[in-house]
Nucleic acid binder design. Structure first.
Lengths: 217, 217
DNA sequence: GGCTTTGTGTGACCATTATCACGAACGAGC
DNA sequence: GCTCGTTCGTGATAATGGTCACACAAAGCC
């Protein structure tokens, strides 16, 4: 079958550590879903009964508060799972929400929560994958915390640009100042001025809707 | 045996959800350790080969950067496990460290990492406990992130005082302004001024080395 | 081409927080 | 009692970042 074939190939490529019986189960029980850039992986307020594994594409995970403020946390890419969906599924969120926006068209595998639990007991590679996911996300979250707590906006901006460049795998970032300001929970003018400084130092080059990284490393 | 008896009692009280065979294993393989207030649970840079379960006492978990800045994240209490030690064990930390300082004398159970993994497969209550720990800590971390990202210092201070009051289970907080400033990564003067405002509004009462909460809720 | 929308540059000003300086109040120990 | 170290109060000043106002440029649309 066409779709099964595709899953096999993608599993091979992005989850090579999974043992054969686990792959069989995944093929049997997981659903493939494709989501276009701009859409959201998780609808806020909706109960979460499945965990998405990212096969292809990029997802931007942010925190949003009730006043419309946003804060970029990290990206999800091929081979990642959305750990946060597990966390959020447990309770109704009080004030803040997690948003998971697709920035490059994604193909995901949806694994039912019920399966997820039973596989933990049966498949060591799945066990290691899930715990590893928690650990990596925890670290990234701590990293984000560090940035906000200890760094000034100029440092945060540079770090942000580096992260974007790495994830998008390109030195040309298709971003507006407004977008950046939003993801760093700052204001457009502040970001514009800081970017200007970076340009004057020859570290980046500014064009409309684009930032070209020259020497940030 | 004396110590075994004590473990049984404490397990009953603080981990009532554990099934009997699991308790037996814990008694066989875990070590009890008592640590006095002021000491640190984790020595920075030391490899972590066991996970601490808190039986009694309170531990303060903070993030510290290389410049000596600190940021309070959350408390660990009876029935909690130190999820972060798992995270930190995996890699050598780059720039920031987690510190876990004992604020009220603790009794902990040290569970070897090897045991931890094998129990996950055998005991559903242990499995749920570990995953639940990750989830709760994740939520708390997100909560902390929110505070720094979206709140101003006065709001953060109020939230901090509430948290301390709840954890210490007392309306008398034995804190100096300097301590608070450090845990919120601010400066003593700022905290003093904000506290003064709260006092003028009748919400707290200030004494040397003590803050008495009157009406913060 | 002209009009509109969107993105960017920039000066002025304000709010919050950090830093410096210094003195007063308190408590422990003698 | 006195002394000394710690804690707290407070004014002055600076730095960072947020807000407002407005000009202008680039891209899209009719």
């Amino acid at each position: 079958m066409n779709q099964k074939e595709e899953i096999v190939q993608l599993l091979n490529r992005y989850f090579p550590e999974f043992e054969e019986p686990l792959r069989q189960e995944i093929m049997l029980h997981a659903h493939v879903r494709k989501i276009r850039a701009g859409q959201f992986l998780m609808k806020t307020g909706k109960a979460i009964d499945s965990i998405p594994l990212i096969l292809e594409g990029i997802v931007k995970v942010s925190r949003e508060d009730d006043a419309g403020n946003e804060l970029f946390i990290y990206h999800l890419e091929s081979g990642d799972a959305c750990a946060i969906s597990l966390v959020c599924s447990s309770r109704q969120n009080k004030q803040s929400e997690i948003s998971a926006e697709v920035v490059e068209d994604v193909t995901i595998l949806e694994v039912n929560i019920f399966n997820m639990d039973s596989w933990m007991m049966k498949y060591p590679t799945w066990y290691r994958f899930v715990l590893g996911t928690y650990q990596r996300r925890f670290e990234e979250l701590l990293n984000t915390l560090d940035s906000i707590a200890f760094q000034k906006m100029d440092e945060r901006l540079v770090k942000y640009l580096k992260t974007k460049a790495e994830t998008l795998n390109s030195l040309n970032l298709p971003l507006t100042h407004q977008q950046i300001a939003q993801e760093l929970n700052s204001s457009r003018e502040v970001i514009s001025r800081l970017l200007k400084k970076l340009e004057q130092r020859g570290q980046i080059q500014l064009n409309r809707n684009e930032i070209r990284i020259i020497d940030l490393f």
